[in-house]
């Protein structure tokens, strides 16, 4: 089973999914991320799906679950880089990823986290 590496940059954890994910790898990533958030005290989580060709209901549910778990561990999640065809397919499939923040790319994802933290400080 392939595992997805988790990078840390300041307060942010960055995960770039570059393989065709098996269900087992998806579940492992969910657990690895929760552990890493707690171990590092990260406040933000960026999941980059630029290279992901399809998001089915299983992977979609994983993204929602990670965002919910991270929120309970005091970290905000942003999914970045979704391809247009993936967005169209997800909506038609019936998944809207409610509760998951998205940004077009990594740069905008970091800016969105900064904005969220800024607002929380006020």
């Amino acid at each position: 089973m392939d595992r997805v590496p988790i990078l840390k940059l300041g307060d942010i954890l960055i995960v770039t999914i570059q393989i065709d994910l098996e269900d087992q790898s998806v579940l492992a990533l969910q657990e690895d991320l929760a552990d890493t958030v707690v171990a590092t005290g990260a406040r933000g989580l960026i999941i980059d799906i630029t290279a992901v060709e399809i998001v089915d209901s299983f992977i979609g549910r994983m993204l929602s679950t990670i965002a919910s778990v991270a929120r309970m561990l005091d970290a905000q999640t942003v999914v970045v880089g979704m391809r247009p065809a993936v967005a169209i397919t997800l909506v038609e499939l019936g998944l809207s990823l409610g509760g998951v923040r998205t940004a077009l790319n990594l740069e905008k994802g970091v800016a969105l986290l900064d904005h969220v933290w800024d607002r929380a400080r006020r």
Binding site: E53, I54, V55, D56, R83, P84, A85, V86, I88, T89
Partner: peptide, 17 residues
């Protein structure tokens, strides 16, 4: 088309699972 490819592969993933 790319969108239709994505739809078919996604449906295949759902039905195989």
């Amino acid at each position: 088309s790319l969108v239709d490819q994505t739809k078919v592969v996604t449906a295949a993933s759902e039905l195989a699972r």
